[in-house]
């Protein structure tokens, strides 16, 4: 069942004041519960504008957003409630932390929802455990934590609202591999538990191929391609035209194929590539 759907969504900023405020034009796609969509596009492709229309931070000029098959803007006064259902994690979310303790900061969203203190406490414990935030760190000021720890507190603040759709704008930017794996695992676990739909924006084709079911390629505010990870990456020429890349292993496989080896190139993960090459090697012995 589609949990989030957009139909002919368009939005133009009243006055473009800088490169960072891009327009979007005629965006239609749909996300099922339990599904993960990755969004690829350059800075200025309209990514952040699109994300902000999904939770009603931006009201589209035309077109519609459907949440659980219902118009997001059906009753504009209730838009605040909708934002709890579509959890949006901004880029570098650690810069939004403000409370005295990490615990209180995670509680900010749930409190705005009007949940009881017991329920909030339960959720904080659950999601800080999921993200590996220690009891000790929960009682510290968020400003005392390390960059990676802050990021996890910020994410916990969104997960504790238990949104039906989780939208993440470059969630792992600046994190080291350990922090990255931890974050992705937490997102997956949350998705398994709640069957939420997930949307991830990332520049890492490698991460996207690991995390996503479908990919959406955005350029100049328009959808250039939308389909399964395989479909999108197979059309590497189109991606190159847009100045985007396929994963590094895929490029290796394409190179090998171009050299005349009879080898598969629809491969996006390292393990698969290694298997294919070793296979090819032993067969040609």
């Amino acid at each position: 069942m589609s949990i989030l759907k957009t139909k002919n969504l368009s939005f133009t900023y009243p006055q473009i004041s800088s490169v960072h405020h891009a327009t979007i034009n005629d965006i239609s796609f749909s996300l099922d519960s339990g599904e993960t969509i990755g969004i690829i596009g350059h800075t200025g492709s309209g990514k952040s504008t699109l994300l902000q229309t999904l939770n009603g931070l931006i009201k589209p000029d035309s077109g519609m957003v459907f949440l659980n098959e219902k118009d997001l803007w059906e009753n504009p006064k209730e838009i605040y409630q909708k934002r709890f259902k579509v959890g949006l994690v901004f880029q570098y979310p650690e810069y939004q932390l403000f409370e005295e303790t990490a615990y209180k900061d995670i509680a900010y969203g749930p409190k705005n929802m009007g949940l009881s203190d017991e329920e909030i406490d339960l959720r904080i414990n659950e999601y800080s455990a999921l993200l590996g935030i220690t009891e000790d760190n929960l009682n510290k000021s968020p400003f005392e934590l390390s960059g990676g720890e802050k990021r996890r507190v910020a994410l916990a603040g969104i997960l504790a609202m238990e949104p039906d759709v989780l939208v993440l704008d470059e969630p792992t930017a600046g994190l080291d591999p350990i922090g990255r794996t931890m974050l992705f695992n937490a997102i997956k676990e949350y998705q398994i538990k709640t069957n939420a739909g997930v949307i991830i924006v990332s520049h890492s084709m490698e991460d996207l191929s690991k995390m996503c079911d479908k990919l959406l390629v955005l350029s100049g505010g328009e959808i250039k391609k939308f389909g399964s990870v395989k479909d999108v990456f197979l059309d590497s020429a189109e991606l190159n035209n847009l100045g985007l890349d396929v994963p590094m292993v895929t490029r290796v496989m394409l190179e090998l194929k171009a050299k005349g080896l009879d080898i598969r190139s629809d491969i996006f993960t390292v393990d698969e590539a290694a298997k294919e090459i070793l296979n090819f090697f032993s067969q040609s012995l």
């Binding site: 800088s18 960072h20 902000q52 939770n55 931070l57 605040y80 934002r83 709890f84 959890g87 949006l88 901004f90 979310p93 810069y95 939004q96 900010y108 969203g109 705005n112 929802m113 603040g157 969104i158 609202m161």
Partner: peptide, 21 residues
Amino acid sequence: IPTLTDETDKIMSAQKARGAD
């Protein structure tokens, strides 16, 4: 001034996403 206006805007959106009214 432009950098901080931009930043204010971002933080504002981020808190609105957490239900700030």
